[in-house]
Amino acid sequence: MIHVRELTKSYADLRRGSFVAVDSISFDAAPGQIYGLLGPNGAGKTTALRILSTMLQPTSGTATINGYDVLTQPALVRRQIGYVSMNTAVYDRMTAWEMVEYFGRLYGIEAENLCERMETIFERLQMNEIRNLLGAKMSTGMKQKVSIARAIVHDPPVLIFDEATSGLDVLVARALLKTVMELREQGKCIVFSTHIMREVERLCDRIAILHRGHILAEGTLSELAERHNESDLEELFFRLISEHDEKQHGLLATVL
């Protein structure tokens, strides 16, 4: 469903020259699977997911979603995905219903079908109380629900969640994770990025540990535990990151 090959993104930077945010990463995610991207802040998770959602163009490498290329067929890719990120806000001056309806319209869904589908979604996400509430008056949790409703209104085969639980309290975060699991049950292919180990452990079928633009390890939780001889994910994560940093410093030391 999602195939990422040697994906690289570098930015021009006045001081440092070019800055590589994502460095030649490759992974695959299948339907009915939650693929976790685990990494500290600045690891390149958001950049990678922005490329998958066609908001950024890769410098090199390819990524296809449901067979469509993110670089050359962005409009088609966007029809295949629902994207929820800490950067995708809801409109302040629109109610929950209006906002979801608006995006449904942009996906070209007929008015009748759209209404039916929205009723189901609002029911499932328990959003009926906030149906007529303006975005400006919503709590963070309510806004997140609206974002999810907006992302699934067109029933896309692929869903991308970028740090979707950041800033949410435990109850709301838990509800969100439950929704994500339900979406997996429906056979969606889900990419879920986070820096919280517990979420990955509870949710993800496969994970990639991302650090400074590189994938340090990739596989199912048990595969990783076996390969690195470490059953605790947090320990594994720290070990991989510090090993990588030491290696980098070592290399730099030989250069200097």
Partner: peptide, 14 residues
Amino acid sequence: ERGTLETLLCSPAE
């Protein structure tokens, strides 16, 4: 500033 442009950009609207 409000973060809603990114929401719109990931919709299928060209």
